[in-house]
Write a protein that binds this DNA or RNA. Structure first.
Lengths: 355, 355
DNA sequence: TTGAAAGCGCTAACAG
DNA sequence: CTGTTAGCGCTTTCAA
C-alpha cells in the first residue's frame, strides 16, 4: 500500500467533498461568524479527516504578510548569541510568527546577501545583530517598509529601534572592582572588531580609571589579534589571548586585567599560570559574558553576566509593537549586565593567597 | 521629504513603465531566451532603477516550492548544536535556500507544533534533531511529501535519511583510553535524557569494559539528574554534575570517569578537587564534546571532539539530493568523532603526579 | 519576440 | 448564512 505523497489537500478538496463553496470553507475554518454551526462542524471534521493544513504561502500572498520575522546574527557559536537565538525563537513562535535565520559571520558581504533574502522573503520585520561596517543595505530594507530592531550593536544612522547591553557600565564595574581590590597597574584585553560593543567597554574602562585617578596609557588597552570571518569557528579563541598574553608578560606584569570576553580570560589564565603568577594574588582578572564554564574554573571567574534572554525578548516585543503601531520615534534600550564576583577577582576583604 | 514606505514594486510597475506586458518582464528578468536583448536591457535597467525585488511568496505559490528548508533543533546553547546551526545555515544559503528555524527544547509538544509550522510553511524539506520520545508527527510530515533528514539522533521507524556521530565509538575509545592508562574502577556519568546518543555512549562504555575483561555493575553507569525543558538554559549544567559527583565520592572513588559531556567533566573536576583527589593521578577523566574551554582548563580535558560542521553539511547535502532524486532507500551515515588526548587522561607513559 | 489568458490557494468584498 | 467575483504577484501554457 505504498502510495506516493499525494498533493496536499486544499480548501477546494474540502469544499467539493461537502458540496460547499471554497469561500464558506475558508470562513468556517477561520472561525469567523457568519457560518452555521452545522457547516462549521462538518468542515472542521472533513478538514481533520483529510489532514488539511492551510497553505501559508497563499494566505500570506493575499494578506500581504508572511507572518515571518528575520533574525540576522553574526555567530551562533558565541554563547551570548546562542541564548539570544533561543529566546528570540521562543518569543517569535509564541506570537505566531515564523523565524527566518541568517548567519553573517561578521562579513559585510554575507550581511548584504542577507538583506536581499529578507526583502525577497518579504518578512514582516527583522531582528538584527549588525556587522556595523556598512549599513546602506539596511537603509534599503528599512525604506522598503520592513521594521528593524538592532540588537547588541546599534546603527544610529538609521533611526531604528535598538536593544542592547550596557557594555560600558559592565566594563566600568569590572574595572572599578579590580581597582577596589587593590589593582593599580591595569590592562584591558579587548576584541579587535570594529564594533561598538568593544568601543563601549573601552570607554567604561577608561572612565573607571579616570574616576579612580589613574592614568591610562595607550598600551594599557590592547586588542587581541583574532581571526575573523572564520565561519563555523568560535567567535574568539582562548588560544589567541593566550599567545598574546605570553608576549605581554615578558617584562613585568599588570596586577589586574579586564578582558572583553571569557575566552580571553581563559587564555590569559594559562599564560599567567605558566609564568607562576597567581590569580588573584599577583593578578586579578575579570571576564565578560559569564559563559557556562566561568563558575567552574579552578579559579572561578569574576565576570560580567549578560542578560541575553531579556535582550532577545525585548527585541521581539519592540519589533511586534512597531509592526502594530507603525512609525514612532526610535526607542533605544540598554539592559544592565551584572558583575558576578568570584575568586579571580574577589571582594576586597576576601583577597588571600590561593596556594 | 519623508515619504511613507511605498508598496514594493511589482512586475507590473516595470511593465507599465515600459509599455510591456507583465509576462515579458517576467521572462526578461528570468533570463529566459525568447526576449530581445533590447527589451531585456530595458527591463533590467528599470528593475534596478526602482529597486525591484521579486516576491518569493508569489513565486513560490505558483512554482510549488518555497525554496525554504526547516531546521528543527533542540537547544542552540549546546555548543555542538550551535556549530551545527552555523554549518547548516551556510550550506543551505549557498544552495539558494532559506532556513526556517524551530527550537524544541527537548519538548515533544514544541516539536509537534514545529511540525505544524513546517507543514503550513510548506518547506521543501527539513533537517531535524528529533526529541525521540514520539514520532507520529514526523510520519505525518514525511507522508505529506516533505523529505526529512534526522541529525545526531535517528528515528529508524520512519526510514528517513540520517546523519549522526558514532557516539558509541567515541565512548568506546574514551573508555579504552582510561583503561589503557591504568584505570580499573571506572564510572560513566551520563545525561538522563531518553535519547539514543546517550544509549550509544553507554553501549560503547560497556563494550570497552567487556573487551578489557572488566565487569560493569549497574552503579557504574550513572545518570546525572538534569532539569529538562528549561528553555533558554544551557543543555546541561556543570552544577548538576558537581552535586551528583559529591554524593558519588562520599565512600571511595573511581579511578577513571567517562562523562557524557564536557559540562559534567567540569562539575566533576570541582567535586574531585574538593576531596583532594588529583586528576589524573587519583582519577583520570574524559569529557565529551571538546567545548571551547576544554583545552584551557587548569587540567586540560581529554575529550571526544564532535564533527559538527561535517554533520551539518552532510545533512543538508543529503536533503538536497533527496529533493532532486526522490525516493531511494534511506541512507544512514555515522561520522567518527575524535578522541583528543590531554592532561586529564594522558597517554599511558605520560601519567605523572601533577603537584 | 511578445501578449493574452489561466491558475497557484487563499481571503475580502459584495450579492443573494 | 452562503455563493460569486475578484485579486494578491508571479509563471506557464498557448496564440498572435
Amino acid at each position: 500500500m505504498t502510495e506516493g505523497p499525494r498533493p496536499r489537500p486544499t480548501l477546494r478538496d474540502i469544499a467539493t467533498a461537502l458540496g460547499l463553496s471554497v469561500n464558506t470553507v475558508s470562513r468556517a475554518l477561520g472561525d469567523k461568524d457568519s457560518v452555521s454551526a452545522a457547516t462549521r462542524a462538518a468542515v472542521q471534521a472533513e478538514a481533520a479527516r483529510i489532514g488539511y493544513v492551510p497553505n501559508t504561502l497563499a494566505r500570506s500572498l493575499v494578506l500581504g504578510s508572511a507572518m515571518t520575522l528575520g533574525l540576522v546574527i553574526t555567530n551562533p557559536s558565541n554563547p551570548f548569541y546562542a541564548q539570544l537565538i533561543s529566546s528570540i525563537e521562543l518569543r517569535v513562535r509564541a506570537q505566531g510568527y515564523s523565524l527566518l535565520l541568517l548567519v553573517t559571520d561578521e562579513s559585510v558581504e554575507n550581511e548584504q546577501r542577507a538583506t536581499e533574502a529578507l526583502l525577497r522573503s518579504a518578512v514582516d520585520g527583522a531582528v538584527v545583530v549588525p556587522v556595523q561596517a556598512e549599513w546602506d543595505h539596511w537603509r534599503r530594507v528599512r525604506d522598503s517598509g520592513i521594521p528593524l530592531v538592532f540588537v547588541n550593536r546599534d546603527v544610529p544612522e538609521l533611526g531604528c529601534d535598538m536593544v542592547g547591553v550596557d557594555y560600558e557600565r559592565g566594563s566600568y564595574e569590572a574595572t572599578s572592582h579590580l581597582i577596589a581590590g587593590g589593582a593599580r597597574r591595569l590592562l584591558l584585553l579587548e576584541e579587535d572588531l570594529p564594533i561598538t560593543t568593544t568601543a563601549d567597554r573601552i570607554t567604561g574602562f577608561r572612565r573607571a580609571m579616570a574616576d579612580a585617578g589613574l592614568k591610562v596609557s595607550d598600551d594599557q588597552v590592547r586588542a587581541v589579534p583574532t581571526k575573523r570571518y572564520d565561519s563555523l569557528a568560535l567567535p574568539w579563541q582562548p588560544e589567541e589571548a593566550y599567545r598574546f598574553a605570553q608576549t605581554l608578560l615578558t617584562d613585568g606584569h599588570p596586577d589586574g586585567v579586564v578582558t572583553g570576553n571569557d575566552y580571553f580570560a581563559l587564555g590569559l589564565l594559562r599564560a599567567l599560570a605558566e609564568r607562576d603568577l597567581a590569580v588573584p594574588r599577583d593578578v586579578a582578572i575579570t571576564g565578560y559574558g559569564d559563559h557556562p564554564y566561568a563558575a567552574y574554573l579552578q579559579t572561578p571567574l569574576t565576570t560580567v553576566r549578560l542578560p541575553a534572554a531579556e535582550v532577545g525578548t525585548t527585541a521581539v516585543d519592540l519589533l511586534l509593537q512597531r509592526l502594530k503601531a507603525g512609525a514612532e520615534r526610535p526607542r533605544k534600550t540598554l539592559i544592565r549586565p551584572e558583575l558576578v564576583i568570584r575568586a579571580s577577582a574577589p571582594d576586597r576583604q576576601a583577597i588571600t593567597t590561593d596556594r
